[in-house]
Nucleic acid binder design. Structure first.
Lengths: 134, 134
DNA sequence: TATTGTTATACTCTATAACTATA
DNA sequence: TATAGTTATAGAGTATAACAATA
């Protein structure tokens, strides 16, 4: 058994499902991911670096994703109050709505998938996924 | 907790690690993934459709990936003995070697990541990942 | 000197729809 | 009619290196 192969398959499969569920938003996977990560944060806000870490990517990858979310009116960039190198990205009200829809679709997909598994399976899986993310 | 966000992060993070470990192969993530999946199969062979299912993608996505692996001499396409619509892709000897290196790197990455977790955590995680892949 | 984020470039990934060949 | 795989096209994702601004 090679867990990483299961990981890749599950990632691709869930992205397909989410795209189907959320097709009317017209957002590609990376934007859904960024949106949902921001939606989980207090105030829907984060620095670019923090968001890159949360996604498992790099700031250079995020720039384009954030540009498109901003063009769609789902996100705004703000200066950091104390460090003028840092950019804070924050969901707009429309962005908050979209993020909540994405998160709801993710939770629903999880709920259905995990219905027949032991209740603690999700926690075990989360621990493994976090260990693989270090 | 939204497991799918942990899933995306773990996927990105493991791809970065594997790329670093296997940099001398010069293969992008999708090719590493296809290679490892084929390496897990008897004879290193599969139909395009079966491989697409294993990866969680679509045949149309695979065509380009398989083209590049073939150009690199890691893979060959063969006719199916009984259905002339079907293509069988098979690792070459060089492809088998490369696939074994990729699988070894994946297993090593997993071994280190899971060292501090309960022994059955990997099995639980695999069950969850497979449920999410349905 | 180091860090944050962006830009430039080049390549890879992916989806959709249309297509060929075969069943 | 349906299925296996490919092609064409367009857009999205990613890495690397270089850069500007700031710490």
């Amino acid at each position: 058994m090679v867990l990483i192969l299961d990981l890749q398959r599950a990632t691709h499969a869930t992205l397909h499902r989410l795209a189907a569920h959320l097709g009317d938003l017209g957002l590609p996977p990376s934007e859904l991911n960024a949106l949902a990560n921001l939606g989980e944060r207090p105030g829907g806000a984060s620095t670019v670096s923090e968001l890159a870490t949360a996604i498992g990517g790099r700031p250079t990858t995020l720039t384009g994703i954030l540009d498109r979310l901003q063009q769609r009116g789902l996100l705004a960039r703000e200066p950091h109050p104390r460090d003028r190198r840092t950019v804070i990205v924050r969901l707009t009200p429309d962005g908050v709505d979209a993020a909540e829809r994405v998160l709801a679709a993710m939770r629903e997909l999880e709920r259905r998938a995990l219905a027949d598994l032991p209740p603690d399976a999700a926690d075990s899986a989360a621990a493994v996924l976090r260990a693989l993310s270090q």
